[in-house]
Design a protein around this nucleic acid. Sequence first.
DNA 1: TGTTCTGTTCTATACATACTAGAACAGTGC
DNA 2: GCACTGTTCTAGTATGTATAGAACAGAACA
Lengths: 133, 133
Amino acid sequence: MILSVDLTSDVPIYQQIRDRVVEAIAEGRLAEGSPLPSTRQLAVDLGINFHTVNKAYDLLRRQGLLRLNRKSGAVVRRDAGSGPPEADFTGDWQARLRTLLAEAVAHGVDGDTVVAACREVLASFATPQEQRP
Amino acid sequence: MILSVDLTSDVPIYQQIRDRVVEAIAEGRLAEGSPLPSTRQLAVDLGINFHTVNKAYDLLRRQGLLRLNRKSGAVVRRDAGSGPPEADFTGDWQARLRTLLAEAVAHGVDGDTVVAACREVLASFATPQEQRP
DNA sequence: TGTTCTGTTCTATACATACTAGAACAGTGC
DNA sequence: GCACTGTTCTAGTATGTATAGAACAGAACA
């Protein structure tokens, strides 16, 4: 199974699929050119409707991470080595980073601890790994 | 005006209020003990329904950042100097950090650039400032 | 005491989103 | 022809968002 979702979570399924694919690309388990399961196949594997998978794939396509066509199916379009991000990405991402870091600081987390947590996450991406606990 | 929201955004209003309060605490514009406007007053200021403000305040209360009662109104309960975060905070926060950083890495952002962006955000919290552009 | 403010808790409605479901179409490869 | 792919419709239910009105209980103040 390439990814798993929690059907009982309050996070929408299509967004969970998006997040898992994004994390898989960051971890290197999916590289540029890697094929993904077809929408119908993944829907069967996850026990959900194929329209939900279609929505997740379309979201990834609009974010520039996936290339979709009838010929080759769903293929990863970018990874960590694909060069600098597209223009409209950085601004929105930094705003979300600001909100997330503010949450930690407001809860009393030290600045150095925040940076250390970021480094730890980035290191886990750089380290090849087949399965996460 | 202590905070502003974008009524045309696709981000729910109650979540925007939550985010702005969290950021204000992180920036030091709101400290432990600082009073917030009453739900009805803030609703009038923002031109929205007071139930929406009530939802945002209740969310902040459940996250441990606000103390609500009839006596003192809405008061900030934690800030950057209130000690280590509560137990159930860290795990969930790190998962969201992982997803957000994965998004940047997958789009081709360099690891050092990510850390630099985090440092920049944290520095902007530490620097006293009345108004952000 | 009476008034006014506060948070809190109900019901109700309109609208958008999330998810499921079925069907059909147009390319592609066998 | 057949089986697969992504794509695009319609349609239904369930949940979430934001609105609105009403009422209650506790606290502050004249």
